[in-house]
Every structure is written in structure tokens, then in C-alpha cells.
């Protein structure tokens, strides 16, 4: 006998939403750390480091996230790590986010006018100091709107974790849909939840962009 689609189901889906946001937040933090390293490698004067970062970005951006998740999910057991699937998936999302953030931030750093770097050198700042005090502060302003925009992509993409059994919003929706046999209502509710989380962030990203160009 099917259950009625009730408020309790919606509450259950909301717990899934908590995991969705949590997973996206972990991926943003992990991806920012790895992404910073990638960015520095990408803009470094060492061609080998730059090439390695470029290759990493090419491969990760050229692989569907779902396949990346499968590799992480099966890979950890394959390599003999006894870590929870959730941890493996969180790490995979971080590596995925790093590839995109590394690309966004490289663009931001390279869009800081060359004169700024030259001015810093003329003032006797070392390369590292020029980066730290002159280039990066300006690049952060440029990089903020697309980074916030990418966070929306991350929140949406955590939905793919449902395929490898992480009980986030999409997975809880599947469970409720199977129990109630009301897929239309259930997935519309899920879509509404995603929209209510993502749309304000999208608007925020756009307003940042407008403020920056004004």
C-alpha cells in the first residue's frame, strides 16, 4: 500500500536538503584550498607546474561528474581505504570544484592589468609580495561573482551524489517518491527547494557583478 505524500515526507526531504547544502559547503571549502594551489601552479613561471595544472583541469572538466563520483566511490575500496562513502564523495566534489575554481581564479588573476604587476616590481616588491598585496586583492574582486555563481552549480551538482547512495535532497525525494508513488508532486517539491536555495544566490552573484562593473 502506498503512503500519502504528507508533511512528514517534506520534513524528511528537508533533512536531505541539509546534507545537500553541507556537501556543497564542504566541496566549496575543499575546492577552494585545492583550487588555490591549482591557480598558483597555473600562473607560476614554472612551465611544468603550469602544464600539470592545465592537464588536471582539462581531464576533470572533460569527465562527467557522475563518472568522477563512481571512480571515487569504487576507487577508495579498490585502493583499500576503509573510509565512509560520504567522505570519498566529499573529497571527489572538492577535486571537481578545484578544477573549476582553479580555472575561474586563473582568469581573474590574468585579468588584473599588467601595469599593476609592473608597478609593483618598479616599487621593488618581490614576485610573492606583488602577488600577495597587489594582484590577489584585485583578482578577488573580479573572481567573486563567478565564484558565487559556481557555488550554485555545486549545490545543484550535489544531486548526482544521490546516484551513489548519499542521502541528500534528491535521494530523499527518490525514497519519498517510491513510498508514495507521487513522483510529480515529490520532484516538483524537490525542485522548489533547490530553486529557493539557488535562486537567491544567483541573484546575489548578479548584483555583485553589477556593482563591480558600475
Amino acid at each position: 500500500m502506498f503512503q500519502q505524500f504528507s508533511f512528514n515526507h517534506v520534513l524528511f526531504m528537508l533533512t536531505g536538503l541539509g546534507w545537500t547544502i553541507g556537501l556543497a559547503a564542504i566541496a566549496l571549502v575543499g575546492g577552494s584550498i585545492a583550487g588555490s594551489v591549482l591557480t598558483l601552479m597555473r600562473v607560476s613561471s614554472n612551465p611544468v607546474l603550469s602544464r600539470i595544472a592545465q592537464f588536471y583541469i582539462f581531464v576533470v572538466q572533460g569527465t562527467p561528474l557522475l563518472v568522477t563520483l563512481f571512480i571515487a566511490y569504487f576507487g577508495t575500496t579498490y585502493l583499500g581505504f576503509s573510509i565512509a562513502p560520504l567522505t570519498a564523495i566529499a573529497v571527489a566534489f572538492s577535486f571537481y570544484a578545484a578544477a573549476f575554481l582553479g580555472d575561474i581564479w586563473r582568469g581573474a588573476i590574468q585579468s588584473v592589468p599588467v601595469g599593476q604587476r609592473e608597478g609593483a616590481h618598479a616599487l621593488g616588491l618581490s614576485r610573492a609580495h606583488a602577488m600577495r598585496y597587489i594582484i590577489v586583492p584585485q583578482a578577488i574582486r573580479i573572481a567573486t561573482p563567478p565564484t558565487v555563481g559556481f557555488f550554485v552549480q555545486l549545490i545543484k551538482n550535489t544531486s548526482l551524489a544521490s546516484v551513489v547512495g548519499i542521502v541528500e535532497l534528491t535521494r530523499t525525494s527518490q525514497i519519498v517518491s517510491n513510498a508514495t508513488f507521487k513522483p510529480l508532486e515529490v520532484y516538483l517539491t524537490a525542485a522548489l527547494f533547490y530553486f529557493l536555495v539557488c535562486f537567491p544566490i544567483t541573484l546575489f552573484s548578479r548584483s555583485l557583478e553589477r556593482r563591480l562593473s558600475a
Partner: peptide
């Protein structure tokens, strides 16, 4: 469409 996950659209 831009603010909801693709997999949810597929399921819908």
C-alpha cells in the same frame, strides 16, 4: 531550469 539540478528535471 538554471536554478534546479538537471537530474531532478530528468526525473520530473
Amino acid at each position: 531550469i538554471r536554478n534546479t539540478p538537471f537530474i531532478v528535471q530528468v526525473f520530473l
